[in-house]
């Protein structure tokens, strides 16, 4: 019986210590980028139609992915090269595109893959080493109406694991400068 109080004390301490640990784990689980709902976009752009049905390459629209840090979104003019001959009647999403073009207003897309400001990711280098867009972005071509969803964690642990597996540099200044 003399150890009961000690045991009880140890138990209580362990439970108290487990609370912040559980909170941290819960935070990283629920705040994981992949666990977030699909972001609303000004126009519900269907990648499915453009990639699977028409067969466009990713770099047809995201033109700078192979040459620069950013993959970049296309200007509306590029959309309109095709869409000026595609009927818009009864298609509200397309009407929004044409309206934006005619009013000379940019479309304010919501960024899906958010990487913090102190991290510099460069698309061109990753693509030149033979990685596919889908390695990080998933099968965007199969994503339909609601919008693109982030399928990979893309937090520092994820980046470093991949860098280690592929023999890339892992010191801080590769990404942080």
């Amino acid at each position: 019986m003399r150890y009961v109080r000690v045991l009880l004390f140890v138990l209580v301490v362990l439970v108290i210590m487990a609370v912040p640990l559980a909170l941290v784990l819960a935070r990283s689980y629920f705040l994981a980028p992949t666990a977030q709902p699909v972001k609303a976009q000004p126009i519900q752009f269907p990648h499915q139609v453009h990639v699977q049905a028409i067969g466009l390459d990713c770099t047809f629209c995201h033109r700078n992915a192979t040459t620069s840090a950013q993959a970049t979104l296309p200007p509306i003019e590029l959309c309109m090269q095709c869409h000026k001959v595609i009927p818009t009647q009864g298609r509200p999403e397309l009407e929004k595109l044409v309206a934006a073009f005619e009013q000379n207003q940019p479309i304010l897309w919501n960024k899906v893959h958010q990487i913090p400001d102190h991290t510099h990711f460069v698309h061109s280098v990753h693509l030149s080493f033979g990685f596919q867009c889908s390695t990080c972005h998933g099968d965007v071509g199969a994503m339909g109406k609601p919008g693109v969803q982030q399928v990979r964690d893309l937090r520092m642990g994820d980046c470093i694991t991949c860098h280690q597996q592929n023999g890339a540099r892992t010191d801080c200044s590769v990404c942080h400068y």
């Binding site: 400001d117 510099h120 460069v122 280098v125 030149s128 200044s173 590769v174 942080h176 400068y177």
Partner: peptide, 30 residues
């Protein structure tokens, strides 16, 4: 855009314009 804006509470210093070096090295790699 190639350089991080440092927030309050961190040190900063000259790093020989490392973003230019990294950019050139990446260009060479591509």
């Amino acid at each position: 855009p190639d350089v991080t804006v440092r927030s309050r509470g961190v040190m900063e210093k000259c790093n020989f314009c490392v973003h230019r070096i990294v950019k050139a090295e990446q260009k060479a790699k591509v």
